[in-house]
Design a protein around this nucleic acid. Structure first.
Lengths: 227, 227
DNA sequence: CCGTATTTGTCCGTATGTATG
DNA sequence: ACATACATACGGACAAATACG
């Protein structure tokens, strides 16, 4: 009948659904707070406060933070706590460079390994994005764009690549002034997508790789232009 | 006068040297045990035992393990504990693919950004490796080889790239049957190094990138051949 | 610059659930 | 089915570092 009845929203979940560990719940919760903007880049994470608000103890919070630190979403300052990472423009440039090389590799691997159906599925996504772009449905385009790139790296059938790619994208979300896909560039961006999938359909590894690397590089250019 | 006097080797260090956190000591200790072979791929980490042997409590051990899990050196099975990761041959192939793309990018960046002195320094390392290879000094070659690749990625001046590269190399150390540099291939391997630094010195990004990617790909081939 | 409050880093005891033989 | 071992998590405690007035 104490506070445990009013503040155990997270703790209760583990009794209901599949028993996720409290630590993994904490990881998800912190990631969520970052994505939703509840936690902003540079913010400090107060262990006690967060633990209480999630209805859990400090142990799992600390474990979750260590995990997110290695994932590049948090940084730790000894005796000062964990902070939401701030990604500078220079760091974003580095991340984009790396992302480009990885995407280029993904394109090469897709040409070698993916089935025609997977490539057709990517083409369909580009078609849908085209509709969204012409209607200037930014939110819809953004959502489809995320799925396009997710499907793309998955089709490369390389888990190390997939994991690394997603870590990079997650870190890019922490850029201080977060520029989403820019309104006026949807058609340009999707034209680049089209070039990629066309090269993939032609099983032209060099062209697909170059087109995708260029698309990523142009993404950085568009990002910088929007700041 | 209890056990605290005999088993606190690690705990004492923090009173002497610069105050590293216990967690970071635990990370280093576990990494060390993996590198030295004290912990083998597939081994489980017993929290209590390890904590006692390090003279610390279980909290920092768990935090360290979460960190190493994200780094790819440990895997966690819920309610069963942390295990030293086993890298299969398929996973090694994936890691080599990714490493190749990253190394290729590094070569391109070096051509664009590194000073002549850095490239000269890399050439000197190749010279030293040549001596070691001709003398069949495997240990010496191995050491120089590590430094060569470290210096290489550092010269690319991209921290995200550097971190990711090192994570990959660390994971490759966990391949079940760990093949070091093969005796008979030292000269061949170093000839590939030579091609890389020559292309770098010529500021030929395409050639340097291709040569380095090929070197990594050949490394996988040599690894497979040695199994 | 000092005293106080806050927070991290760490330890310990304990309870609970899950996997293993 | 049972007992054991262990991971998971909690809660309280405290020193030390840091932030604050």
């Amino acid at each position: 009948m104490t506070a445990s009845q009013t503040t155990n929203s997270a703790a209760q979940q583990i009794n209901q659904r599949r028993a996720k560990t409290i630590t993994s719940i904490a990881v998800d919760a912190i990631e969520d707070m970052i994505v939703t903007g509840e936690l902003l880049a540079g913010d400090r994470i107060n262990e006690s406060t967060l633990a209480e608000s999630l209805g859990i103890s400090r142990g799992p919070i600390r474990e979750a933070c260590r995990s997110l630190e290695q994932a590049g979403l948090l940084t730790s300052k000894t005796n000062r706590g964990m902070y939401v990472r701030e990604v500078t423009l220079d760091e974003a440039r580095e991340l984009y460079e790396l992302r480009g090389a990885i995407a280029g590799l993904a394109a090469e691997l897709i040409v070698r390994r993916a089935g025609d159906d997977e490539i057709v599925s990517l083409e369909r996504l580009v078609d849908q994005m085209q509709v969204a772009a012409e209607e200037s449905s930014t939110a819809q385009y953004y959502k489809l764009n995320l799925q396009f790139h997710d499907d793309l790296v998955r089709a490369a059938r390389n888990n190390a690549l997939e994991d690394t790619y997603h870590k990079i994208v997650n870190q890019l979300h922490l850029l201080r002034r977060r520029g989403l896909v820019q309104e006026g560039n949807l058609l340009i961006s999707n034209a680049e997508h089209r070039r990629v999938v066309t090269a993939l359909a032609n099983r032209d590894a060099a062209a697909a790789s170059a087109a995708l690397r260029e698309h990523v590089a142009n993404g950085l250019t568009r990002l910088i232009a929007s700041l």
